[in-house]
Nucleic acid binder design. Structure first.
Length: 572
DNA sequence: ACCTCCGCAGGTAAGCAGCTGCCGCTGCT
């Protein structure tokens, strides 16, 4: 069995933690942690790289020493340094670091002074009043740790973006009405429109911070106030979501918004530029010595370091800063660019609305076309269409198109790709359709090679147009199936096939990174709602968010085009 | 431990708030 990158990373994280508790050279600790992060983020397997004779020291942050340790680990499964460290520092202490309020220094104290090794020991010690007697442990920290223990399992997963909207709306409304508040916005990953959100970062412009915060902590959905000072406060909502509130003067609002929107990596990259220009950059503004040069708006902050405004969705340090420097930022797609939807279902299969209703609502959206893509017969969860029922739907659409004025209904289907790469409906009926979207709903557990070949074989069929929800993942619920997506993208490019960005908020499939990869390879994307009811047409919104995170412009997406162009783009 | 236009030397992102307890730890982007 070859070792996975995640396992290598886990070993190095563990080593870094244990050495951190021991109090080793912090830069050495950081080096191990960096290495873990790098390995975790690689798309290629380290074990494979070694087999291919690649030099691991080419990876950033991996020098001779680490390369050697990694190679030994991969080839022998042994990690002598970790083993040796574990004889001095019990590996279970690793767990204690996960509790909020506990870092390496406090864990060391707990272990050395009270022999606390695990969460149970810690709980008992707190109950017996031993912990508060230690230096650096006060009443508030103790309470925070106790809460951390109670909640440690509960809040591990990040919320889906869609599930945070109503909370953010309510919070924003509440804060806006507090006296002294001039502006408020939810920053962080919410503002970057990431598919999941860890916590909510509320940035407020206003004077009298203390009063604003005193009022804020009265918000009725708050279950627990974790901290509250005069400029910041952290609370937990009943839903378990953590909210950080930060109050700054109006002249610092843009700087604070920039800072708290992140990402962290984007901020670091910006600050490096600022430092090179002998400027100081923080959440209060851009400073030359003591003089504030910018801070009121984000635009101003970027301008001071010689950059154009960068949209929040791009702020991940994935090349946006270099692009900004060369004035090559993409003009990101917007909801307004969309001229139609290419994936939806009706009562003919698992949808909630009739064909006519779906068409009418799509027309109200201002769409020029709508593809009706009910499931084919193979799918067991729905009564899929067979040759006969699909033929009936085709006739029904022809009739409907005579009545509709502003929108054209495209005849289509979501056809199942079977295990051998064939479709579950014969070509004679499939070729009667305007387009076909193709997807996998079975045999998720094929080997990577088999799965890749299955999709490529399906794409060999000239009737294949769009690969729907290409990776099959469900956010927080199901991993993507194993296959070589890069190969599939190249195959799609060669054959003139399109990849879908499915806008269902729990799919968002392709994800942001794959959208960017597809764009770089030159594969076109269709952003589709996969609506199962009329109100789900609105999910297009989330698809656009993800597309923007994937650097997509109007021209990268086929359903931004008028029907005549769309037809050309679909032609193989 | 890694990286640096060299690397024997020196920096490693940066700065702030809150808590604790008057320096340092932790968390945050």
């Amino acid at each position: 069995m070859t070792i996975h990158n995640s396992e290598i990373a886990a070993a190095f994280y563990k080593l870094a933690n244990l050495l951190g508790i021991e109090g080793a050279n912090p830069f050495r600790v950081r080096a191990y942690r960096n290495a873990a992060r790098i390995i975790e983020g690689l798309t290629k397997s380290v074990a494979e790289l070694i087999t291919q004779g690649e030099n691991l020291t080419d990876l950033p942050g991996i020098g001779n020493d680490l390369a050697k340790k990694i190679t030994v680990l991969v080839e022998t499964g042994k990690f002598p340094l970790l083993k040796e460290t574990e004889t001095r520092i019990p590996p279970v202490l690793n767990e204690l670091l996960k509790i909020e309020g506990l870092g390496p220094a406090r864990v060391k104290l707990l272990y050395k002074k009270l022999k606390i090794k695990n969460i149970n020991d810690l709980k008992t010690a707190i109950e017996k009043g031993r912990v508060r007697k230690l230096a650096r442990f006060g009443e508030k920290i103790e309470k925070k740790i106790l809460q951390g223990i109670l909640h440690r399992e509960q809040y591990v997963t990040r919320a889906k973006l869609v599930d945070t909207i109503s909370t953010v709306t309510a919070l924003t409304h509440y804060i806006k009405n507090i006296k002294g508040v001039e502006k408020v916005e939810c920053a962080g990953s919410f503002r970057r429109h990431k598919e999941t959100v860890g916590d909510l970062d509320m940035v407020v412009a206003g004077s009298l911070g203390k009063k604003i915060i005193d009022h804020f902590i009265q918000f009725e959905e708050i279950s627990e106030v974790i901290s509250h000072g005069s400029t910041r406060s952290t609370v937990r909502l009943r839903s378990g979501m953590q909210v950080d509130l930060r109050v700054v003067p109006k002249k610092s609002y843009g700087a604070a918004l920039l800072y708290f929107t992140g990402s962290k990596d984007h901020n670091i990259a910006l600050r490096k530029i600022a430092v090179r220009k002998k400027l100081k950059m923080n959440e209060y503004g851009m400073f030359k010595y003591k003089k504030q040069l910018a801070g009121n708006t984000e635009e101003e902050m970027y301008r001071q370091i010689g950059l154009p405004y960068i949209e929040p969705e791009l702020r991940e340090n994935r090349g946006e800063i270099e692009a900004a420097q060369q004035d090559k930022l993409p003009k990101l797609i917007t909801l307004n660019d969309m001229r139609g939807d290419l994936h939806c279902h009706t009562t003919a299969t698992d949808g909630a609305a009739q064909l006519e209703t779906m068409a009418k609502i799509a027309e109200e959206y201002g769409y020029e076309y709508l593809a009706i893509t009910d499931h084919s017969k193979h799918l067991t969860i729905a009564h899929g269409l067979n040759k006969k029922t699909l033929w009936q739907q085709i006739k029904q659409i022809d009739k409907l198109n005579h009545q509709l004025k502003k929108i054209i209904i495209l005849k289509s289907i979501e056809v199942d790709i079977l295990e051998n790469g064939s479709f579950d409906l014969p070509p004679d009926i499939l070729k009667e359709l305007d387009l076909r979207i193709c997807s996998i709903h079975s045999n998720f557990h094929l080997s990577s090679e088999e799965q890749t070949n299955r999709i490529k074989r399906a794409m060999d069929n000239p009737l294949f147009n769009i690969l729907a929800h290409p990776t099959g993942r469900l956010i927080n619920r199901r991993e993507p199936y194993t296959f070589n997506i890069e190969q599939v993208m190249h195959a799609a490019k060669e054959r003139g096939c399109i990849l879908e960005l499915n806008a269902q908020p729990d799919r968002l499939d392709l994800n942001d990174l794959y959208c960017k990869a597809a764009k770089e390879i030159g594969v076109k994307i269709a952003i589709s709602s996969d609506a199962h009811s009329t109100n789900q047409f609105a999910y297009m919104h989330y698809g656009i968010f993800q597309a923007r995170r994937g650097w997509l412009t109007k021209n990268d997406v086929i359903n931004t085009q008028p029907l005549s162009n769309l037809k050309k783009l679909l032609k193989r």
